[in-house]
Lab assay of single mutants.
Amino acid sequence: TYTFKVDNKDQAKKAAKWAKKLGLSFQIEKHGDTFKITVQ
């Protein structure tokens, strides 16, 4: 499981695209202005 934080929606979208490309499941949680992405 890999967790990282991004500062904006664009970065969150890029991370989601990357995870989908690799066939991984992911969750994006919004914490105020940051997004926490968990990829597994």
Rank of each mutant, 00 (worst) to 15 (best):
K13Y: 10
K20C: 14
L22C: 15
G23L: 03
T38K: 05
Q27E: 09
A12S: 03
D7F: 14
V6A: 05
K5P: 05
S25C: 10
G23M: 05
K20L: 10
K21W: 09
K21I: 07
T38H: 06
E29L: 06
K17V: 09
K17P: 01
D33Q: 08
Q27W: 13
A15N: 02
I37E: 00
T1D: 07
F35Y: 14
G32E: 07
Y2S: 03
G32Q: 05
K36I: 15
A19R: 01
D7A: 14
T38F: 05
F35A: 01
K30R: 12
D10V: 12
G23A: 03
K14S: 07
K21S: 11
N8R: 06
K9L: 14
G32S: 04
Q27P: 00
F26T: 04
V39N: 00
H31D: 15
H31K: 08
E29R: 08
W18N: 02
K30W: 05
T3H: 08
Q40P: 03
L24E: 01
V6Q: 01
K5I: 15
I37A: 02
A15P: 01
T34F: 14
K21F: 07
G23D: 03
K20N: 06
Q27N: 10
D33T: 11
L22M: 12
K17R: 13
V39E: 00
V6L: 10
D10Q: 13
S25A: 10
D10A: 14
A16C: 14
V6K: 01
K14F: 08
Q27H: 12
E29F: 07
K20I: 09
E29I: 09
L24W: 07
S25W: 11
V39K: 00
I37Q: 00
D10M: 13
T3E: 08
K13M: 12
Q11S: 09
Q11N: 05
K20Q: 10
Q40D: 07
Y2F: 12
A12Y: 04
K20P: 00
K5H: 15
K21L: 08
L24C: 09
K30Y: 06
K30D: 06
L22H: 13
N8E: 03
Y2N: 03
H31R: 08
W18V: 04
V6T: 08
A19K: 00
T34K: 13
D10L: 14
F4V: 03
V39A: 02
A15G: 02
F35E: 00
W18S: 02
Y2G: 02
K9Q: 09
Q11A: 13
T38E: 03
D10C: 14
V39T: 03
H31Q: 13
V6S: 03
F35G: 00
G32M: 05
Q27C: 14
S25D: 09
D7G: 12
K13C: 15
